[in-house]
Write a protein that binds this DNA or RNA. Structure first.
Lengths: 204, 204
DNA sequence: TGAATTTTATAACAAATGCTTTAAAACTCA
DNA sequence: TGAGTTTTAAAGCATTTGTTATAAAATTCA
């Protein structure tokens, strides 16, 4: 047909993720992007279209890599354990994030989604997916008695989603273990079935 | 001494807040800023220094206006009511935010704080202040029996702070009442003293 | 081999960026 | 009044922005 690509698309996309993730959309220039990806700007435009399209592909790749794989993996576990492990991982990830890149989905929710219908949809769907994961876990946990039925699975899932986003925001300015673990502790306590809940004040 | 200013500093700062709040730091140009503030770029540089300094002043002004006044006002109320009212206000504010500007502090926490030590400090202090407000409320509520002692005031305050941030993030892509109120419902339930807590399952 | 096609490298484009210069205008105080 | 000082308006500065034109290089299929 014609001259073949000289680059591996997944590899250069991974590099684009790294840069956009760290610097955001506006603060990342095509030239910086080209340098990081190891391509010329011409090749970028030829292969992807425009800057927004590169960001879109990078975001999709990020979602698939870090979010998709986590949900798939944790869905195997018993529901209550899945939730605990989820937040464990997020906190460890946040604390070892020395560049304070945070979560690219959350970053996108604030920088690009509000002004762009396409990204509004994409980010909205990811948040929906996360909510669905939590709801699934809570429901299953309520069914097998490992999670409290004091609140609806719908609402508890929403609270968990919000806790996740809150931790992600907090970690970018105050990545302190005590703070992040302190956030999640009462939320997990909320999930405890009444019977097994260790009340702080429980005189005989 | 010399020629006097032709503009009201508070007024032009308010306009700067509006623009930075809506578009963020990077996506706002000095020219757009000058147009919105009703000044020339020369006047801006003469009065404020550089772009970053304008953003800094705008952020401080925002904090004082929307956050400072809220904390002062709600601190008058009984602690449990203060917390309820706080989230009521945030949710109403988020739902009527047709431009989806969100909270300028949260926006700053993600766009400017991670790469700038000065803003890291400023944003960090604001988050600390919020945490302190919540902690104060929880402690007082625990003392007068209107808030559960099942979790420490420190941790509950952290959870409330995170819920606030989570709602702010969620609202920018999914400003739905059911979602935002669903987030906070289990959190408020968590605050209920054991005695008065309406358990979903409570056979005689 | 050679026509057809796509990718690459280099350079360029107009527009926009943050910021500064120049000089006129508007004030205070002696 | 007039010397001194600051603010304003207008234009300009170098650099960077996203994107594209041009032509050489690398492939496939006939």
């Amino acid at each position: 047909m014609a001259r073949p690509r000289e680059f591996d698309e997944e590899l250069v996309l991974l590099r684009a993720v790294e840069l956009f993730w760290e610097r955001g959309y506006e603060a990342t220039s095509i030239r910086h992007l080209a340098e990081t990806m190891g391509l010329t700007t011409a090749s970028i435009y030829n292969a992807f279209g425009d800057k927004k399209a590169v960001y879109r592909r990078a975001l999709d790749f990020y979602v698939q890599l870090s979010l998709g794989e986590r949900i798939r993996r944790l869905s195997q576990k018993p529901p209550r354990e899945a939730i605990d492990a989820f937040f464990d991982e997020i906190i460890e990830r946040s604390l070892s994030d020395t560049k304070r890149k945070g979560c690219m989905v959350v970053n996108s929710a604030l920088e690009v989604a509000p002004h762009d219908p396409e990204f509004q949809r994409v980010v909205g769907e990811v948040l929906h997916q996360l909510e669905g994961f939590f709801r699934h876990c809570v429901k299953a946990g309520q069914d097998n008695g490992t999670i409290s039925t004091g609140q609806s699975a719908d609402d508890m899932a929403r609270t968990l989603l919000s806790a996740l986003l809150g931790i992600r925001v907090l970690a970018r300015t105050r990545p302190e273990r005590e703070l992040l673990e302190g956030v999640i502790k009462p939320v997990l306590w909320l999930l405890e079935p009444e019977a097994s809940r260790p009340g702080k004040v429980s005189p005989p």
